[in-house]
Amino acid sequence: MENVVLEVKDLRKKFTLHLLEEKEIVGFQSVSFTLKRGEFLGIAGKSGSGKSSLIKCIYRTYLSTSGKIIFYPNGRNSVDLATCLDEEIIDLRYRKIGHVSQFFYAIPRVSCLDIVTQSLVQQGVNIDEAKKSAKNMLSCLLIPDKLFDAHPSTFSGGEKQRVNIARALVKEPELLLLDEPTASLDKVSRGTVLEEIFELKKKGTSAIGVFHDEKELRSFADKILVMGNEREIKVYENDNPR
């Protein structure tokens, strides 16, 4: 068990819409899997099958309806991300868990370099070192130097998304959650982003990523989770991981 980073057991999510006469909507049904250190789990499935909902439950943007999400961080006690205190989640988000959302939120008129730097400063890295690593990460993700002091609100969709990714990757988190990270990227930058993720994998980061295309996932994921209705949900080892 010592190699396990995350253990998801019979996790379920449903939404109750109080404004629509208590209508209930199923996010996803019974999901279980384990993730080992340095593994990449890809999540595939149709739109609306609950892929993003699952990522959001693990990051605690959604409250899980039932089930467990046991996280085994290095050097700490294991913790159930579905039920632990908000304070614990905040601390884990700063130090252990990286997340790339589908949408990009940042304080307006803060430079993209500062946004990425802040993510390290929160981790306790000193500001000069943080700046250096942030510059490095932005360059790796093909953001040109001349944009470093520009505000991301003026960026293209793909550039914004790469800043968003840089902000998560620069922390070298133990657990990386990716919600369609490459959806708005062209082929070249998509490849670069994946390269950076593999670099982190080598250093021990485990990742869970939503990707639309199961075929694409088969070219690099260690395990694939297919979402759908209760009968369709399955996890399988990929024969040909990278």
Partner: peptide, 19 residues
Amino acid sequence: ESGLTDQILEDPQSSYTQL
């Protein structure tokens, strides 16, 4: 209701917060 900011905004539980 209380919770993480993104959770309150994206998965509010009470009827008032949903509104």
